[in-house]
Simulated scan of single mutants.
Amino acid sequence: MTISFENLQGDLAEILDVKVTEVTADTELTGSEHWDSFAMLSAVALVTQYTEKQVTLGDLSHLATINDFISLLKKLKES
Rank of each mutant, 00 (worst) to 15 (best):
E78G: 00
A25F: 05
K19V: 08
N67I: 00
A45W: 02
L12S: 02
L16T: 03
I70M: 01
F5C: 09
V55I: 09
L16S: 05
K19E: 15
T27K: 08
A64W: 02
Q9E: 12
D36W: 04
D59C: 07
A13D: 11
A13Q: 14
E33K: 08
L12T: 01
K77L: 04
L73H: 05
A39Y: 00
K19H: 12
E33N: 13
A39I: 00
T51V: 04
S42H: 00
Q54I: 08
D36H: 08
G10T: 14
K53I: 04
M1R: 13
D26M: 10
L57A: 05
G31D: 10
K74Y: 00
V47P: 12
I3V: 14
S61D: 11
I66A: 03
G10A: 15
S79A: 12
L57M: 08
L63Y: 01
I3M: 10
L8A: 13
T2K: 14
E52Q: 15
L72N: 07
T30N: 12
H62P: 00
V44S: 01
H62F: 02
V23A: 00
V18Y: 09
L29A: 01
D17G: 05
Q54H: 12
T51Q: 08
F69L: 04
S61L: 02
L41R: 01
L73Y: 01
V44P: 05
K77V: 02
V44C: 03
L73I: 04
I3A: 10
T24Y: 10
I15S: 00
T51K: 10
D26C: 06
E33T: 10
D17C: 08
M1W: 09
E52W: 06
T48S: 14
I70S: 02
V20F: 04
